[in-house]
Simulated assay, not measured.
Amino acid sequence: MKIQINTDKHIEGHQRLENYFSEELEKGLARFEDKITRIEVHFGDENGEKFSVNDKKCVLEIRPVKLQPITVTEHAETLEKAFNGALSKAKKSLTTTFEKQKAY
């Protein structure tokens, strides 16, 4: 499972940030590891320099083996909260997708 982390020009993307979120993804999605080829994480600050509530965005694009990509988005006041919300949505979506696949 390859993990790629992208940030917009308003978010400083450094190695520590990438390591932290990569580790969290690997732990959080460990049970799906053999069913996922790649995960792309997109972080953004929708208002840039201006302050606003829930202006941080995290988009997870998950590419399961032999299936269409699954995309989830979460907005929050911090990157960590946006990431955790998106990760939670991704787990639910993957669980549902793979359970439906088992049923057929």
Rank of each mutant, 00 (worst) to 15 (best):
H75N: 14
H75D: 07
H75V: 11
H75W: 12
A76P: 06
E77P: 13
E77W: 02
E77T: 15
T78K: 05
T78D: 13
L79S: 10
L79D: 10
E80N: 15
F83R: 11
F83T: 14
N84S: 05
G85Y: 09
G85V: 13
G85N: 06
A86C: 02
A86Q: 06
L87V: 10
L87F: 11
L87N: 12
S88K: 14
S88V: 06
S88Q: 14
K89A: 12
A90T: 10
A90Q: 07
K91H: 11
K91P: 03
K92Y: 05
S93Q: 13
S93C: 04
L94N: 07
L94P: 10
L94M: 01
T95L: 06
T95P: 01
T95C: 01
T96Y: 10
T97L: 13
F98H: 04
F98K: 01
E99I: 01
E99Q: 11
K100V: 03
K100A: 03
K100N: 05
K100L: 05
K100H: 03
Q101T: 08
Q101E: 11
Q101N: 08
Q101Y: 08
K102Y: 04
K102L: 05
K102N: 05
K102P: 00
K102A: 09
K102H: 14
A103L: 03
A103Y: 01
